[in-house]
Simulated scan of single mutants.
Amino acid sequence: MIAEPENKATFYQYRLLKKKAIARSVIYSYLCLPVIMLLFNLLAFSWTGLFFFLLAGPITIWIHYVIARTILLLVRTSYAKRWRWNMRMPWLGYIPDQHFSFRMFVRVHLNMSWIGLCIITVCL
């Protein structure tokens, strides 16, 4: 094996990621959706709709957390350290905090979608 000279530098290639800014108008329009659903619940189910609306939010976030955490633990434990809770709009819940492969992100959300559709089908 040939020893490399000490003056030879090591070069690393980094990929700079650009942070996307989300316009306030988009966030406000996103916040209008729960208000519209609350009004629909109040019209369709009277005052009990308010109770179910307030109950559905935390249950939905908890189900997403359980599904995402389970998939991350089944696949690889190192991924679980890269996710955290976010309570800022427009993304609420358990989301990636560090660099995360797009393939794994799609896998987690695809499983969440299928399991969510199964839960909705059972509830109907």
Rank of each mutant, 00 (worst) to 15 (best):
M1W: 06
M1D: 07
M1H: 07
I2D: 04
A3D: 06
N7D: 13
K8P: 01
K8S: 14
A9I: 06
A9H: 10
T10Q: 15
Y12E: 07
Y12S: 05
Y14L: 07
R15Q: 11
L16Y: 07
L17R: 13
L17W: 04
K19E: 13
A21D: 08
A21Y: 13
I22L: 13
A23I: 04
A23W: 11
I27R: 02
Y28W: 10
Y30C: 01
L31I: 08
L33A: 13
P34I: 02
P34R: 05
M37Q: 05
L38N: 02
F40H: 04
N41W: 04
L42I: 14
L43F: 14
A44G: 03
F45K: 07
F45P: 00
S46V: 11
T48N: 11
T48S: 14
F51S: 06
F53K: 04
F53C: 06
L54S: 15
L55W: 10
L55S: 08
A56I: 10
A56D: 11
A56H: 10
A56N: 12
I59H: 07
I59T: 15
W62C: 12
I63Y: 11
Y65M: 02
Y65P: 01
A68Y: 09
R69D: 13
L73R: 12
L73D: 12
L73G: 08
L73W: 02
L74Q: 03
V75D: 09
V75Y: 09
T77E: 09
T77Y: 04
S78V: 08
R84I: 03
N86D: 13
M87G: 06
R88C: 07
P90W: 02
P90N: 03
P90L: 06
W91I: 12
W91G: 01
L92S: 02
L92V: 15
I95S: 01
P96E: 02
P96D: 02
H99I: 03
F100C: 00
S101D: 12
R103M: 13
M104R: 03
V106Q: 10
V106A: 11
V106K: 10
R107Q: 09
V108K: 00
H109R: 12
S113R: 06
I115L: 15
C118D: 04
I120M: 14
I120L: 15
T121R: 07
T121Q: 05
C123E: 06
C123Q: 02
L124R: 06
L124P: 00
